[in-house]
């Protein structure tokens, strides 16, 4: 598998200190660490939402730290997908319009095709009958799955997820994680920031961040439903060792 994202000596103020790691195509990696350790900042910087102070971020062969804001925006639109904890959506649009919004922007005049794709994704993730609902008429889990649909519309190479289950109850969270696994199995790379060891345990690897540095890494390998319990126990022990 080729390297999709390579990070070298990435620094941002006092939050990130010379961080280096890489992500290979098709991997699903979790970033964990206590509050204030720099997890979210890492995510913003490797996805080009924020401008790093130093270091190098190479995405799919392109060095992105030096790109202009517009170039980074293009990259996010066409090659990256995002899922946020707050489930940011535009309140005055219904669910399906929110899902197609960025894709419509990238591919004008293909409204029907995009709507079809959105409906297929929604069906796939069990929210097919909510397409016309307003965003305040669906549950948190449903909304987050809609956000995941949105992130997939452009068939991105990577999905960045920032605490995607942070605002959800246990069962909704489980649905969302299941959705990520499904995506990943189809080949999309996932980098997920999470607080929840159980969520992290489904990932191929876990990076542990503390005071702006990567302090440890746990390799779990590809997830199968059979070894779920065992992975969870390994993860929790490792986290305990890291001082979680």
């Amino acid at each position: 598998m080729k390297e999709l994202l390579t990070v070298r000596n990435l620094s941002k103020g006092k939050i990130l200190k010379a961080i280096s790691f890489e992500l290979r195509e098709g991997e699903m990696v979790a970033v964990m660490g206590p509050s204030g350790s720099g997890k979210s900042t890492l995510l913003y910087n490797v996805s080009g939402m924020d401008r790093a102070d130093g270091g190098e971020v190479r995405f799919d062969g392109t060095e992105i730290v030096g790109l202009s804001e517009d170039e980074k925006a293009r990259l996010r639109l066409h090659k990256m997908g995002f899922v946020f904890q707050q489930m940011n959506v535009l309140a005055n649009l219904n669910l399906i319009d929110n899902i197609v919004l960025p894709a419509m922007h990238a591919m004008k005049n293909r409204k029907r095709e995009l709507h079809e794709r959105a409906r297929a994704l929604m069906d796939d993730f069990g929210i097919g009958d909510l397409a016309e609902r307003r965003v305040n008429e669906v549950s948190g889990g449903q909304l987050q799955r809609a956000c995941i649909c949105r992130s997939l519309m452009m068939e991105p190479e990577i999905i960045f997820a920032d605490e995607p289950t942070g605002a959800l109850n246990r069962s909704a969270a489980a649905d969302v994680i299941e959705t990520f696994l499904k995506i990943n199995r189809k080949g999309t790379t996932v980098l997920m920031v999470t607080h929840d060891g159980k969520n992290a345990a489904v990932c191929d690897r876990i990076l542990y961040l503390l005071d702006g540095e990567i302090r440890g890494e746990l390799k779990l390998g590809k997830h199968t439903h059979d070894d779920a319990k065992e992975r969870e126990i390994r993860t929790l022990r490792w986290l305990e060792e890291m001082g979680w």
Partner: peptide, 11 residues
């Protein structure tokens, strides 16, 4: 949010 999703300032 639009920016995060890839809209440029100019757009």
């Amino acid at each position: 949010l639009k920016k995060a999703l890839g809209f440029t300032t100019r757009e």
